[in-house]
């Protein structure tokens, strides 16, 4: 019906953009799908490059075996720890500080606020940062994952902008009833800012989960390794990975599902990417709002 009404040129235009977007969208999803079907397919078919469109010889050996690799489940715990604790701290701090910075009567407000915002555009550099962390005894220390991220300027800007849009009469009437800043924050600001707090929770959680540079620099002891960093090592050190597979007793299994460096890499990648893919549909609606508020402030 609709198509019939279109002029030939318009129909062609529509067809071309449908196709272009189709191809690009496919290129965005297919890598994840490809990895998934290869990790659950028979390993010798996968190694021969025969798994392209659908899984064959479905089994879960890869996942059960990979989870037994020494260090992997511990690395998963470290990743979960930094994601949960780090996110909690940065959201709490950003909410509180974002609220405080809306109070015009604060002593030196402009200076403090600007000194935080300016850090988004300026950094001392890798080595000065590393030496500072080292002097603070934050190398080989779990605190290094959560303390620096407490202050995330972008989050503070988002909360401040959001709080400024709340009618001040609400706060003022609470203040006249004798409520202090902390009480107003707890019972008025937090409930009213949930949408933006949800947004920054998601941004921070994804950031924490994805971080690996800090591990690469600050952690030499394997017990501080995160999943991301372990994956990076597996990608780059195939000889040590092969040795790891040989040394693990359960790895051999059946012939067609023998673990190879490739199968281990793909399975670990899938394990690291899965949490993001699972939470993605839930947080998708929040971040559009977040990026819009951020854009206003630029």
């Amino acid at each position: 019906m609709r198509i019939a009404k279109l002029k030939p040129g318009d129909a062609l235009f529509q067809a071309v953009i449908y196709l272009l977007f189709g191809v690009f969208t496919l290129s965005c999803i297919y890598p994840f799908y490809y990895l998934f079907i290869n990790t659950i397919s028979s390993n010798d078919l996968s190694a021969a490059g025969d798994i392209r469109f659908y899984p064959r010889g479905i089994h879960l050996d890869n996942y059960t075996k990979v989870l037994k690799i020494s260090g992997l489940s511990h690395a998963a715990l470290v990743s979960v720890y930094r994601t949960v604790v780090g996110t909690f701290l940065t959201v709490g701090a950003s909410a509180f500080l974002g609220y405080l910075f809306t109070k015009r009567e604060m002593w030196g407000r402009q200076i403090w606020y600007r000194s935080i915002v300016v850090t988004m555009y300026f950094s001392a550099g890798l080595i000065p940062w590393y030496i500072t962390m080292h002097n603070l005894h934050l190398t080989n220390n779990y605190l290094a994952y959560i303390l620096p991220s407490i202050i995330t300027p972008f989050n503070i800007i988002l909360v401040k902008t959001y709080v400024e849009a709340i009618p001040s009469s609400l706060e003022e009437s609470a203040s006249m009833d004798g409520a202090g800043y902390l009480r107003i924050f707890r019972s008025i600001i937090v409930p009213l800012t949930t949408p933006i707090l949800a947004t920054i929770t998601i941004f921070s959680a994804v950031n924490q989960w994805n971080s690996f540079i800090d591990t690469a620099f600050l952690m030499t002891d394997t017990k501080y390794y995160t999943l991301q960093f372990l994956l990076w090592r597996y990608l780059n050190e195939s000889s040590s990975l092969a040795a790891l597979i040989r040394s693990s007793p359960d790895m051999a299994a059946s012939v067609q599902n023998m673990q190879t460096p490739t199968s281990v890499r793909m399975t670990v990648t899938m394990i690291v990417v899965l949490p993001i893919l699972i939470v993605y549909p839930f947080f998708q609606r929040f971040f559009v709002k977040g990026i819009m508020i951020g854009a206003v402030k630029g």
């Binding site: 490809y34 991301q228 990608l235 890499r265 793909m266 670990v268 990648t269």
Partner: peptide, 14 residues
Amino acid sequence: FISWILVYALAFSL
């Protein structure tokens, strides 16, 4: 929303 390490891991397999 995935890290560059993960992008590289995907590229590595593909």
